[in-house]
């Protein structure tokens, strides 16, 4: 009897968890999508800044304008700052998603720990045609949480740019997009989970 109750409460918490996860995944995807144009802008600006630093304006028709080079550089740098700020805002959204997921997964594991004895090993491992076992679901949750954490950190580190590394900023969009591709296997897993979920009856 108590076994049924414990497993029931665990299953409920799992279901809630996956629901929230679905939402968070949507938010994450949206934020990343919004980041893409910003990253491209940033790389364009860095390209322009690099060119501006290299060009020699004195020997051309533009030599009439005073302080042209410095003003251009200042303007470009200001634009880059603005873009970076926006990117940081998106990053903070990603951070919120990450924290939410960590909290959620933590709570699910806590519930499992509390009810583990009652459910027993057999209960955790039993799979049916229309629902995965508790062990499987716990595994997926752990993987998802780790994935979000990793992704956030890598993206954050990638955006730690400096003015003297303009060539690196130029390559930023490539790295950024590569992050999405690399984690394609993880994306697949998540896709499967959510698809499964929509079809499950508990």
């Amino acid at each position: 009897m108590s076994e049924k109750v414990s497993s029931g409460s665990l299953v409920q918490s799992l279901r809630r968890c996956f629901d929230v996860l679905e939402q968070q995944q949507k938010e994450w995807k949206f934020a990343i999508q919004e980041c893409d144009p910003l990253v491209t802008t940033l790389s364009n600006l860095s390209d322009q800044l690099q060119a501006c630093q290299k060009v020699n304006l004195q020997n051309g028709p533009l030599s009439e304008f005073p302080d042209l080079q410095d003003r251009l550089q200042y303007k470009l740098k200001a634009a880059m700052e603005v873009t970076l700020e926006k990117l940081n805002d998106k990053l903070s959204i990603l951070q919120k998603v990450r924290d939410a997921v960590s909290l959620l997964v933590g709570s699910v594991f806590y519930v499992y720990e509390v009810n583990a004895d009652n459910i027993g090993l057999e209960g955790s491992l039993s799979r049916t045609a229309h629902s995965p076992s508790i062990a499987d679901m716990l595994e997926w949750l752990q993987d998802i949480e780790k994935h979000y954490r990793n992704q956030y950190l890598v993206r954050k580190l990638l955006l730690q740019v400096r003015y003297d590394q303009l060539s690196e900023i130029k390559n930023l969009p490539q790295h950024w997009n590569r992050l999405d591709d690399k984690s394609s296997s993880k994306q697949l897993v998540e896709g499967i989970i959510f698809n499964f979920f929509l079809n499950f009856i508990f």
């Binding site: 720990e113 090993l121 508790i134 062990a135």
Partner: peptide, 20 residues
């Protein structure tokens, strides 16, 4: 990178461990 080791259910019950 997950620090997991995969055992069969009988081994797990013999050891007396729970998942994770």
């Amino acid at each position: 990178g997950t620090q997991r080791c995969r055992l069969g259910p009988k081994a797990m019950s013999l050891l007396g461990v729970k998942i994770g």
